[in-house]
Design a protein around this nucleic acid. Structure first.
Lengths: 399, 399
DNA sequence: AACTTTCGTTTAAGCATTAGACATAAGTCC
DNA sequence: GGACTTATGTCTAATGCTTAAACGAAAGTT
């Protein structure tokens, strides 16, 4: 067993990082609150706050209401002008967004693409668009980059894993392409997982996000962290077997959920009736075409009964539907009804089934969260300060 | 938003607790290793180790192999003579165990009972047996108590929640009964969850534990922590609906998994053939009775296809079967075959399906883990030291 | 016996942290 | 407007934890 080295002495209990975490988590605190909650001495606390201010981590915000004397002023985490760049790749579209540290999309640019093209030709233009978007901002600091894409992604490395949907993409193609342009913290994540994380409203929530697009993807978020499973394949619900002998699935097996309820299955079913693509199907559904609604209804029925099992297993607070098919209100409503009908009261109580935000908005938010976590992981800020202390110490030896 | 008070200054980066965690996690380290991994000075480290030794948290163990000079001696976490008491309640039996800090059952006592009796009359005798078991040990220190039972349990409080299986049990009956006898850390947990935690082999593993007894329970363990879900109902897989119109379940709905594959369903099916109870069924299965094997096979088939969905959702390392029905090798094998047949390669790869340890052994191990976590939670040891420091400071004021 | 490595203790010095005091700022209350 | 209250900002001497360094002893290997 290996034991990692721990920087000693340099990181105290109420270290810079700890203070910053307190301030960030509480969405701002006054000096008095910090004094009482940390129990630190005034001198030390002020010195720390000074340093954090000088480094640009915090700033003094609006005064709080007076309780009879001089009002205290709130110390906030410095998020003004700090942005994250998010690239969200779909099968046919890609979006570059600039987001604030809370994951709100500030501005974005979407272009059409074919994700099955080589990585370079897909990512290159988006990265250039990202740089253009960044150039539009004034006094903005880019903190990090997040990329989501419709393929499995290895957690630690950000490597693309089974690039069947992305033929010819080398495992490290995303990491390499982004690193060539920016030397900043980078996260790469599967699209449904990023969107699922972006859809959660608090870290206490358990959310199941189901993306029904061409295929069926799923992101499960439990207490703020993404459920990955033993081999990173958790949430691969598209290939739950619904019937012993159902329609043939692309995976070569029969009766998979995706063979009933995916956008591809729908398209194939409806192409005979003249609906050429998803846009046509969505339009017809909006217009109330009975054939389309019927197809959606039966797709939703199968998906709903599968998700009932998922919901029973995980007992989430919310089940969020996204993707080109999943985001259709009619479809989502049908799924919701079926899920709630199939589930015992104890599980159904309090369960919310709904359509999510636009996918690039959700994924952008999730990616920003991941980037911020990478940068401000517990202790990470202290690492910065302690490394600096080491540098200073060796630069100015004590004796 | 409330901010908890943080003990300041008293807890350093390489605090007593941190050191103890290092030592415990590494299963023992030499002083030299501690010096290099923590980077502390010799004086400080030795002072800390002194204190920890005096408090009985660590001890000096066997010397390591020499690398050419004086051999270093291993410092170990003091677990000698430290025990945890575990009470594991089933429908018809209860077991009291004494376990070491790693959760190994040292000695135990099992008695028959009816868990639907009042809490007092169920727990009272077991607590007295526990005290008798403790009296048998020499130089043992009891660190805490764990109780598992076949009902939902509220996470933080240890309150019994929907005591339908335990009529007349007040929510706090377990907590009250144990606290009347011991003033020590106590954890109460659902039986399948405790057993699931006990079945995991490392904190990296994702384990799905399925208890098929009278009913069907499930404990999901992801990276060492129990998945509870929004309302604590995660893993309630017995009521996954398998067919729109299946046999009537006790819950009043039709087609639930439990109506196909639970011990109750099996008994009802086989009672017509003269098998009066589970013991008779187990015996007949062992003897190869075709009617029993047939019933088991179809029960396993339904359970297997349900668990295929669960496994697809969670992608666990292992699927462990327990309970009176689940622990039958024939049954477990049938389930395993069905799961692996229904699951895509990516999920099935590396998946192990197997029967678990005896249930009280597994639950005992899980409970011990929970008790140790409660006692040695990150920072908890430091809390002890810092409280002591505060007491000392106020007892002997500095000036 | 020489060498190597760990153990255990001691020193003075260094440094971060503290309590406390004091002055100032900026509100409320009458 | 004046008294009161509460928060901010800065300074000081005292305190006590942590460190580096040294040294002698212990316990192995070669």
């Amino acid at each position: 067993m290996t034991v990692e080295r721990v920087p000693a002495g340099l990181v105290g209990a109420t270290s810079h990082g700890h203070l910053l975490e307190l301030i960030r988590a509480a969405d701002g605190l006054s000096r008095q609150q910090l004094l009482s909650t940390t129990g630190m001495s005034r001198a030390t606390l002020y010195e720390r706050l000074d340093t954090l201010t000088r480094r640009g981590y915090i700033y003094e915000a609006e005064p709080l209401d007076s309780t009879g004397g001089r009002p205290s002023r709130k110390i906030r985490f410095e998020d003004r002008g700090r942005v994250v760049l998010a690239i969200t790749l779909g099968q046919t579209h890609g979006t570059v967004s600039i987001a604030d540290t809370a994951g709100r999309q500030l501005r974005s640019f979407t272009k059409t693409l074919d994700v099955s093209d080589p990585a370079e030709s897909v990512l290159g233009p988006l990265i250039r668009e990202g740089q253009a978007l960044l150039a539009q901002g004034k006094n903005e600091t880019l903190l990090g980059i997040g990329v989501s894409l419709p393929a499995p992604v290895e957690a630690g490395t950000g490597h693309v894993r089974h690039p069947t949907t992305l033929p010819g993409w080398a495992a490290d193609s995303v990491v390499a392409a982004v690193n060539a342009s920016w030397d900043l913290p980078l996260v790469v994540e599967n699209d449904a997982r990023a969107a699922g994380l972006g859809e959660r409203r608090s870290d206490a929530e358990t959310v199941v996000y189901v993306k029904v697009g061409t295929g069926i993807g799923c992101g499960i978020v439990v207490e703020g962290s993404i459920l990955r499973g033993a081999h990173g394949a958790a949430g691969d619900i598209g290939h739950i077997r619904m019937t012993p002998d159902g329609p043939l699935c692309r995976c070569g097996r029969r009766g998979c959920l995706a063979a009933y309820s995916s956008g591809r299955a729908l398209s194939e079913k409806l192409s005979a009736r003249g609906f050429k693509n998803m846009a046509a199907i969505r339009a017809a559904a909006g217009a109330g075409d009975p054939a389309v609604l019927g197809a959606l209804e039966s797709a939703a029925e199968v998906l709903g009964s599968a998700l009932a099992a998922t919901v029973t297993t995980l007992n989430p607070d919310r089940l969020v539907l996204g993707g080109e098919v999943g985001s259709m209100d009619f479809f989502a409503q049908q799924v919701g009804e079926r899920v709630l009908a199939d589930v015992v009261d104890r599980i159904g109580e309090g369960l919310v089934v709904e359509t999510g935000h636009q996918e690039d908005v959700a994924a952008c938010s999730g990616l920003a969260t991941l980037v911020m976590r990478k940068i401000f992981a517990p202790g990470a800020v202290d690492q910065v300060f302690s490394e600096e202390a080491v540098r200073t110490a060796s630069g100015n030896p004590r004796r």
